[in-house]
Design a protein around this nucleic acid. Structure first.
Lengths: 169, 169
DNA sequence: TTTATATTAATGAGCGTTAATTAACAAGAT
DNA sequence: ATCTTGTTAATTAACGCTCATTAATATAAA
C-alpha cells in the first residue's frame, strides 16, 4: 500500500478513500488488467474465416498480449499460484471462459476426433512458455533476441501445429 | 519461519541452530527439491535409442515429475516470478542447463533445420501448462479426470509433435 | 453546507531475528 | 568409573521493524 501510494503521489491513508482495503484494490487491479484482454482474444478466434487462419490470429494475438503487457502475464501467474477459489473461478469463467469455449469449437472444426480441451491447454502452453521462461533464457545456451519476439514465437508454434492440424482440414 | 518451526515441532529460534537465516533455509529447500529432478530428466534424454523414443521418454518423465511433486512445480513457478539473478542463473545453469542442452541436440537430430532452442521451450510449455492450469481446470467446460494424468498428457503432446518431427526422420 | 479527498499521527499485529539460558551428550583427563 | 569440558540443540523472552489500517482533522469544490 505504501508503494502504491507513493507511485500515485498521495499518502497511504488517502488510498482508503478510493478502496476499502488492500484486497479490494488488488481485485480492481486484476479486473482492470484482465478484462480488456479477454475480448481481444475472443475477437481473434471469431469470424467467418478458415479455422486455421483464426487459430493463427489467436496465437499471434495471445503472443502479442503477453509480450506487450508483462503485468498481465505476471498477475496471471501469480493468480495461478496463490489465487483462492473465488478468484480462480472468476478468472476461468468471467475472463477466459468464452475464449476457451470458442477455442475448443475451433479445434473440433479442425480435427473432430481430437480432445479439444487438452489440445487448447497445450497450445496455450506453447505460446505462453517462452515468456514464462524469459527470465531464465539469457542463462541458456543459444539464447537469441528473436526468442522474445511475438511474431517469431507465433510462427514457430504454427509451424508445429499446422502439420498436425493442417492435414485434417 | 514460525510456520516451519511448528511443522517440525520445534520453536522458531531453534531453526537458527540449523540455518543461518530464512534465506539460507529457503535455498536449501530449493536445492533439495530441484537437484534430483534434473538428473532424472537428463537420463531420460540420454541413451543410444532412436531420437523420437528418447523424446517420448523425456516428455513422459517430465510429465510424471510435475504430477508427482507439486512442490517442485510450485517452487519453479515462484522462482520464475520472483527469483533474483543469482537464483535464476543457478536454476538455468546448474539444474536445467545440461538437460536443455541435451534436449536441443536431440531436436537437431530430429530436424536439423529447426530452431532447437525455441522448439525446446515450446515443448516444455506443452507438457507443463496442463499442470499450471490445473487449479483453473475444474471451472472450464469439458474438464475431465484424464487431463491431469501424466501418461495421457504425454500422449497428447507426442501426438502433436510426432507429425511435425516424425516426417523429418 | 455538504461531500469528497487529502493530511498527520497513531495503533496493533506479524515478521525475522537475537539474547540469555539450559539440557543432553560425547571425548579426554584424572 | 568419574569428573571436566566443549559442542549441539533446545527453550523463553524480547527487540526492532514493517505492514495494513483507523482516528482525528483539514481543505477544496459543488
Amino acid at each position: 500500500m505504501r508503494n502504491i501510494a507513493e507511485a500515485v503521489n498521495i499518502t497511504t491513508p488517502a488510498l482508503y478513500n478510493h478502496f476499502k482495503n488492500k484486497q479490494s484494490l488488488y481485485l480492481a487491479a486484476i479486473s482492470d488488467t484482465f478484462e480488456n484482454k479477454s475480448e481481444l482474444l475472443l475477437q481473434a478466434l471469431s469470424g467467418q474465416e478458415k479455422p486455421l487462419l483464426r487459430l493463427h490470429r489467436f496465437i499471434t494475438q495471445l503472443s502479442q498480449v503477453l509480450h506487450d503487457d508483462p503485468d498481465f502475464h505476471r498477475l496471471m501467474q501469480r493468480e495461478l499460484l496463490d489465487g483462492d477459489e473465488e478468484r480462480l473461478r472468476y478468472l476461468a469463467q468471467e475472463i477466459f471462459g468464452a475464449s476457451f469455449q470458442q477455442m475448443m469449437e475451433l479445434l473440433v472444426e479442425l480435427n473432430p476426433d481430437c480432445d479439444a480441451h487438452s489440445l487448447a491447454v497445450i497450445i496455450i502452453g506453447m505460446v505462453q512458455k517462452p515468456y514464462e521462461l524469459n527470465p531464465l533464457d539469457r542463462f541458456f545456451p543459444d539464447s537469441r533476441q528473436q526468442h522474445n519476439n511475438p511474431a517469431y514465437i507465433s510462427g514457430q508454434v504454427m509451424a508445429v501445429l499446422s502439420t498436425y492440424l493442417g492435414d485434417t482440414v
